[in-house]
Simulated scan of single mutants.
Amino acid sequence: MTGITLRHEGATLVVGFDRPDKRNAITVEMYGELAAALDRAEADPAVRVVLFHGTDGVFTAGNDLRDFLENPPDGPDHPAFRFIRTLASANKVLVAAVDGPAVGVGATMLLHCDLVIAARTAQFAFPFINLGLVPEAGSSLLLPRLAGYHRAAALLMLGDSFDAETAREIGLVSRVVEADALQTEALALAARLAAKAPEALRQVKSLIKSPRHEVDTRIVEEAELFMHRLRSPELREAIDAFFAKRQPDFSRFA
């Protein structure tokens, strides 16, 4: 596999983003591997918890933009959308250990995790607007419920990065720890969860999650807009600016 590592720690499936030369940016191939790993975890009674983590002080910088533009989503079966749906519908407990950047899908996926531990050095961003895009993964529904409308609007309309303490304040992160303790704390938390009564744990998760049909509907609505935005001149300007290492100029767009 390329860019994704999988290992078992007792009843925990540990899923790593491991593409440090690209800041763990996610390719289409990686999305397919992630979705397949979650499907296998759902079907495996020996797996009770899934733990996501990054590599070398980076969770993930989000989509690999060059790969994403070469293989853009063109329907609901695209690996990126398949991963999002699998994540959103997971019955197993999902935990994330975040250090360094968690950008784009690296931040929106956390809205579907049950517990998130962050290092103090973690940085989060929902930068879709800066690329002329709309939010994804149900974040336009889930983030306002979590953080309140005005804070969610600021995060999604400005696309600024924010630190671990802010993430904890708005409820995106459940706990902040020192960077050198992150992996140990996350594995210990996953082990505690894995030791709970499994059926009861699944039922607790089902009870406290947002109504499933609302999330599913919003994911589809966002995906349709997202695919349309990928063909927009605003996105082209944002991508050209990104690779030219300059600020995008949207002044000519109405």
Rank of each mutant, 00 (worst) to 15 (best):
A46Q: 12
G104V: 00
S210Y: 13
L235V: 13
R40Y: 01
R66W: 14
P76N: 06
R246I: 13
I170N: 03
V28C: 10
D39L: 14
S140F: 08
I170Y: 06
H112G: 05
P144H: 09
A11S: 13
L142G: 09
F242N: 07
G75V: 08
Y31V: 00
R192C: 09
T55C: 13
L110T: 05
T108V: 13
A238L: 11
L182V: 07
L94V: 12
E136Q: 11
G106K: 11
L111P: 00
T27F: 05
P101I: 13
E9I: 02
P76E: 15
A88W: 11
K22C: 10
E222G: 09
V134I: 15
E214F: 06
S139Q: 04
P20Y: 06
G75P: 05
K196A: 15
F128Q: 14
H150K: 12
M30P: 08
R48M: 05
P76S: 10
L189Y: 09
D64M: 00
T5V: 06
G100Q: 02
V14Y: 07
Q123M: 10
A90P: 04
G100V: 11
R252W: 06
F250N: 07
E221G: 00
V173N: 06
V95D: 03
P233M: 12
G159R: 02
P233N: 11
A254W: 05
V177D: 12
E221D: 15
H150V: 00
A152V: 10
E222Y: 10
A43Q: 14
